[in-house]
Computed example of a mutant assay.
Amino acid sequence: MTDKISPKLLVPALDTASNAGTSATTLAQAGYKAVGRYYSRYSWKQLTRAEASELFTADMDIFVVYEDNNDAPSYFSADIGNQQALRALYQADAVIQQPRQTGIYFAVDYDASSYDYTHYIRPYLRAINEVFASFGYPYHVGIYGNGIVCSCAKDDGLAKLTWLSQSTGFYGYQEYKESGDWNILQGPYVTIAGTQYDQDTLNLNRGSYGGFGSFATPSCSN
């Protein structure tokens, strides 16, 4: 770590594609403060409102990432970005009632090159931002990926939040980790109560990482 990061503002967290609600108390007792979960077209890994309620009851925060496949260049285009952005907004607002101005990360779940970023991922992220902008940016756009993807998306103004994937051999990993510019750093696997999780570090030196610890407060109509 560089001197840009205060260890006092590094917080332990986890992420998983499995329902974490039934283990929420166990996770909290183990010292973890938040769980990363999914929005997706695939129902098996979607965060549900019941699960979110169980996590909140255990005083656990949630951060979310959108992912269908998202693990090859062919899964990234402006059309796909548009579709995934709309689906993410629907799940956040209508299903979960995620509080506004928190974050939704979008996954780039492979070792994308600079060429991939320029020709596939940048158009994908531009489309996501266009959809979010059309709704008044209710949530901050985040990116999950290797160091190149995180740094380029941040530099291009296409991601406010960055989550550096755990694969230490991926492009730009070490440089981006040492920059201290990440909001979440993914680490090695751990098994808790029979479920496999990735361990994460939340970097509060960079302010909010986009997580939330309650449902949105319903607004009153006149």
Rank of each mutant, 00 (worst) to 15 (best):
P138A: 10
A216N: 08
T57P: 00
D93R: 09
I143R: 01
D116V: 05
L47C: 10
S165A: 13
E67L: 10
E175Q: 14
N146W: 05
T2W: 05
A13E: 10
G172H: 06
T48C: 12
Y38N: 06
Y189D: 15
L86T: 09
I143S: 02
S43V: 14
I192V: 15
Y120Q: 11
V64W: 01
E175I: 06
Y117T: 05
A193L: 03
F135K: 12
T118R: 10
Y189Q: 12
G145A: 13
Y38I: 09
A30E: 15
L86A: 14
Q174A: 12
S114D: 14
D93L: 00
S167K: 06
L89Q: 01
G136Q: 08
I148P: 00
Q91D: 14
Y75H: 13
S114T: 11
I192T: 09
I192Y: 01
G36F: 08
V149S: 04
S40I: 13
R122M: 14
I184T: 01
I148N: 09
I184E: 03
Q91Y: 02
R49I: 08
G31C: 11
Q46C: 15
N82Y: 09
I143G: 07
Q186D: 13
D71R: 03
C220H: 12
T217I: 15
P188H: 09
T26P: 01
A107T: 08
I128R: 01
V131W: 02
D71F: 02
Y32P: 04
D198E: 11
Q98G: 03
Q196E: 12
A13H: 06
L55V: 11
N222R: 06
S40F: 05
S219T: 15
Y137I: 08
F106A: 05
E178K: 00
V141S: 08
C152W: 14
V190S: 04
A127Q: 09
A30C: 08
Y209E: 11
E130A: 14
G172Y: 07
S208M: 09
D93G: 00
R126A: 01
W44Q: 11
L9P: 00
S23Y: 03
R49D: 14
D200R: 02
D93C: 01
G145M: 12
